[in-house]
Each structure stands twice: as structure tokens, then as C-alpha cells.
Design a protein around this nucleic acid. Structure first.
Lengths: 296, 296
DNA sequence: CAAAAGCGGTTCAAAAAATGAATAGGTCAA
DNA sequence: TTGACCTATTCATTTTTTGAACCGCTTTTG
């Protein structure tokens, strides 16, 4: 949309933090971009950038404006996708921000199901911790978020809640592998591999440990659940993950942690509050809702 | 906003029904406008107008687009007004679509109260029947609607409901003027002056008459409540109006119709569903809500 | 402490885009 | 069939946007 390029420039400047950098990004001269902004500010009736010695920054007016710009652009894309839809082309793009647990198993399966029916639809999948996922949603960078225990920002509208009991991951020959369900105190006797602080699983474990006046002392911290799973094989340590992220794997076994110690974590499916999603995203969201019911 | 002019052109064409007419309205050549539209359609990825022998008309894609355009423009105005608000200027514009009953008394009073506090805010007040009011709301031509018994279109979001018992208007020396409350059958003995079909009052009267297997035979129909009120003075006929539209007037008296015959009509305050109103409009709406509580 | 680097803002000639006037070519109604 | 009215196209002209060079300023760097 060529006539909306000013908006795109404004976004680029906000992102880059300086007119010159943004000019470079957008393949234009700094002078041209500068004048564009000045003209826009005049039309708009207010400055939208603070001029700092080392660049520019959105002022409050600019913050309001960029919110409008983003929502407007997303809405226009939605309209375009609706139009494409009614002309029978059925294409579109769906962007998902999700917790790591969804990456190996659940999401690939769901996306492949969806694309079997709508091969014209493309996807982007971004792994985000619970905070970043919400930011992405409210910046219109992602249409859909599927995250464990987010912070519930105001912009985040929950569509579906799935309780997830944290599972203990260990080798089949691990002493704990015979128990039906595992108590938290039992875990503390063994080497633990824990996810780093930004993850929901860690958050839940910490909270539970605190309530039981225990502390977690992991031998390894990692931000990769994949790594942790593999490590459990090597050292015969125990790792933790939510069921939706687990697949049967040779040599490993999974047991639920007792809900007496740790309440189930909530896996939340949601979107930007009040936003009308593009056709493709809305349909994919519907599919996810149905698929998630299995876990209830 | 100069860079959004294409959108304004599209709106003008949709309104005018032909590129030439719109070109004239917008002080531009038909050829220039035509090319603009063609370029836009190419960028947009779909035609938005049906080319007819006698002009053009929005096709379904165009309908979707113009919805977006209108909501987008309204949102931008809102952002501008918010910006003005935070720079302390406190200006803005409020547009109200309302039933005739609100015009003589209620709205002028409310607007004057509001403007006493915010003299920078301007108003437009448009009298609309219940259908037109809803259309205005969903076209973003009005921010706020205050109408009797609208049809409840999906886009219309009700903020406040005020029951209004229809009153009979007559001269002080009219035979009915002594009754505390008046039955519908009594009215039929006298000359009646009725509003035309598009008004809520007429709608309610007709429905009530039908239930009682009676028919209304007005000696005069009018679309002006002001006229009807004055006419009651001359012929000693009876007219009808809702309480919110009535002020004491020398020589005239008002009596409620019995709710046994006619259920109270609903005066509805509302706006476009899901729309974020500009600051000024939102505040005025709040004030109206409070003011209307008196009638409950 | 001085030079360098990085920033937004300004100026002016050059390039690009939008425009107007004229006109082609179509459909419909009388 | 004619005339009215429409969209679409072409091309010279006008308007707008752009790039290059430079100014004045602040911060960083050596």
C-alpha cells in the first residue's frame, strides 16, 4: 500500500531509534525521511518524536499514534485476507507466538493438519517466553499466542485455558520411575535440570518450593527443553516439562508431579483484545481450541 | 492527513456513485481520479468497484474496504483528539444522532452543561428516525445515538436504556385533561394527531392498537412533533409524545397513557459496537448516561 | 581537550509522481 | 440511431518527492 508508506516510515524510526538508521533500513535518504516526518507532524497537529542528542524517541502522542498505525495495518491485512477469501483464493498468513513446549509436537501437528486443507496459508512460529509473547500480541507481531502462565496483560484476551500438570522426565532406570505420581520432596533428592527463570515451568516450581519452604538447587539450568530432556538421559538427572510438550522417547519415562505440591499450570490460548483476526488466523485459532479440548 | 486522500476519494466515489461526480465534488479531474483508483485496486489486489454503464458501485470487496476506511478514519480522529487532550488543549467534536423528542429540551440543556466546562468542544446534532440513526452510527457519521425504539442492528451497542411512557398532549380545557392516566380507548373518541410511520411513538401506538383490535385514524399526520403540539392548541385535538420531549407550555397539559394499554417505549443511548470513541464523545456519553438516570 | 562521529535540520537542483485536457470507446434510453 | 453519460487511455505539464551536500549541535573517543 504505497500511500501508507509514511506510517511504515514512522514505525521504522520508532524501531531504529533514529531517523538516519531508519532511513538506511528503508533505503531512503535521511533528509527525505526527516522532511516526511516534519510534514506529517505538521498535518497531524503535534510532534510525535522527541528529539534527543543521539536520535529520536516516540513521545506520548507518538505512542498513541503508533498504536493506531499498528492496529490499522493489521486491520487492513485482515480486510485483504477477507477479500482474498471471498474471491476463493483462500490464502493468508498466520503468526503464532508460543512457549517452547508447543514447538516439538503439538504445533507442527496442528499446522500440518491445517495446511492439508488450506495449502495457500503460510505460517510463522516464534518461540517466546510468557512476557515476550504478550508483547508480540499487543504489537500485532503475532496473531495468536499459546503460552504457559503468562502475566495477563490487559491487552491479552484469553480464548482457551488448558491445565497442565508438570511432568517429571527421567531415564527408565531412575529410582523414581516406578511411582505413579511423584512428590516434590522426592525430586529434591536427585540432580535436577531446570529451565531458566523466564519459563512458566520454572515459575511454578519455584512457587511450589517456596510454599513448602524448600529451595531448588538445579545442577543445570537451560533455556532449551530439548537439551534438558537429552541431558536427563546422560546424567540420569530429572527434568521437568508440561505434558503437551512430551512425546514418547526411547529410554525416557514421564511421571506427573503430585497436584498436592504443585497446582497445574495454565496453558493459555489468546489474542490481542478486541482485535478482529484475519480469516486464516481466526480459523486456525478455532482449530487449536478444539484440539486443546483433548487435554481438559 | 494528505496521504490518506486516496481513502477519501474512495469514499467520495462510493457516495456519488460515479467517478465523474466524485471528481467534481473533490475538485479533481475524472481522469486523475480514475487512475488513482486503478492504481489502488492494483496495489490492493482486487477491484473494489463494479463498473456499470451508468457509473460505479462498490463490490463486496469494496464494501469490506470502506468499512475499514471509515473505522480507520474515525480511529485516527480519536487518536488526534486524545493527543490534543494530553497537550491540554481539550478540544474535539461530538456528533449525535437523535430522535426529535430530544431536540427541544433535553439535548440543548445537556450540551450547554457540557460546553460550559469544555468550551473548545463542538457539536453536531442530527435528527434521525430510528433506522437512519443506526445507519449513521455504523457509518461513523455520528458518534452517539439517542433514539426511541430502534431496530437493534448488530452494530448498535446499547449503553443505556430509559423507559418512556407515552404522554397524551392536549389543551387544558380538553375533556380528558382531568384523568390521572388515560386509556387508549378514550383517545380514539377524539381527534388524534399522529407522527408518521418512521417514528417510535407511532410504532408503539400502532402495536398497542392492533393488540386491542382497534385502528388509529389520525386527522393529521406529521413528522414534526413541534407542529403536532401546536396543532393540539388549535383544534383541541390530542397528540402524543414521550416525556423527555415535553416542557411545560402555556395552555397545554400532559397525561400519561396507561401502561396497561401501551408498554413504555425504550429510549436507547448507544454507539457503534466495539468502537473506541474520541475523548470528548466518550465523556459526553457518560454525562448523558447520568442525566438519563433521572428518568428511571 | 581536541578531533571524530553521529545526530536532526536545511537548501537546491534533479527525478519521480500526479495531474489536466483531449479523446477513444463503451452502454443505455429516448 | 442519436445523444447523453460513463470509464479508460495518452501525453504534455505541473506538483511533489527525493538525493547530495552542508550546517550546527552533542556525545564519544583518542
Amino acid at each position: 500500500m504505497r500511500h501508507l508508506i509514511t506510517f511504515q516510515y514512522i514505525e521504522a524510526i520508532a524501531r531504529a531509534g533514529s531517523i538516519r538508521k531508519a532511513a538506511e533500513d528503508m533505503n531512503i535518504t535521511a533528509s527525505a525521511l526527516n522532511r516526511r516526518i516534519q510534514r506529517f507532524e505538521e498535518e497531524f497537529g503535534s510532534e510525535i518524536f522527541e528529539r534527543l542528542p543521539r536520535g529520536v524517541r516516540l513521545n506520548p502522542a507518538g505512542e498513541l499514534l503508533i498504536r493506531h498505525i499498528r492496529s490499522q495495518e493489521s486491520d487492513l491485512r485482515r480486510v485483504q485476507s477477507q477479500v482474498a477469501d471471498l474471491s476463493g483464493i483462500r490464502r493468508g498468513h498466520v503468526s503464532v507466538a508460543c512457549s517452547q513446549a508447543l514447538v516439538p509436537y503439538f504445533l507442527p501437528a496442528q499446522i500440518s493438519i491445517y495446511r492439508r486443507e488450506h495449502p495457500g496459508v503460510t505460517f510463522s512460529v516464534n518461540v517466546r517466553d510468557r512476557e515476550a509473547a504478550e508483547t508480540d500480541i499487543s504489537n500485532f507481531k503475532s496473531d495468536i499466542a499459546l503460552v504457559l502462565e503468562p502475566n495477563f496483560m490487559v491487552d491479552f484476551q484469553v480464548q482457551s485455558v488448558v491445565p497442565q500438570i508438570i511432568s517429571v522426565i527421567m531415564r527408565e532406570d531412575h529410582p523414581l520411575s516406578h511411582a505413579e505420581e511423584i512428590r516434590l520432596r522426592d525430586c529434591l533428592d536427585y540432580s535436577c535440570v531446570l529451565p531458566t527463570a523466564q519459563y512458566g515451568v520454572r515459575h511454578l516450581l519455584e512457587r511450589a518450593a517456596e510454599e513448602n519452604s524448600r529451595t531448588l538447587s538445579p545442577v543445570i539450568e537451560s533455556d532449551s527443553f530439548d537439551f534438558m530432556r537429552h541431558y536427563a538421559l546422560h546424567e540420569n538427572a530429572i527434568a521437568f516439562q508440561i505434558p503437551i510438550g512430551l512425546e514418547p522417547k526411547a529410554g525416557l519415562t514421564y511421571r506427573p508431579l503430585s497436584v498436592k505440591d504443585i497446582p497445574p499450570g495454565n496453558l493459555l490460548l489468546g489474542q490481542m483484545r478486541g482485535r478482529a483476526l484475519p480469516v486464516a488466523s481466526a480459523k486456525f485459532m478455532q482449530q487449536l481450541e478444539i484440539a486443546l479440548q483433548v487435554y481438559n
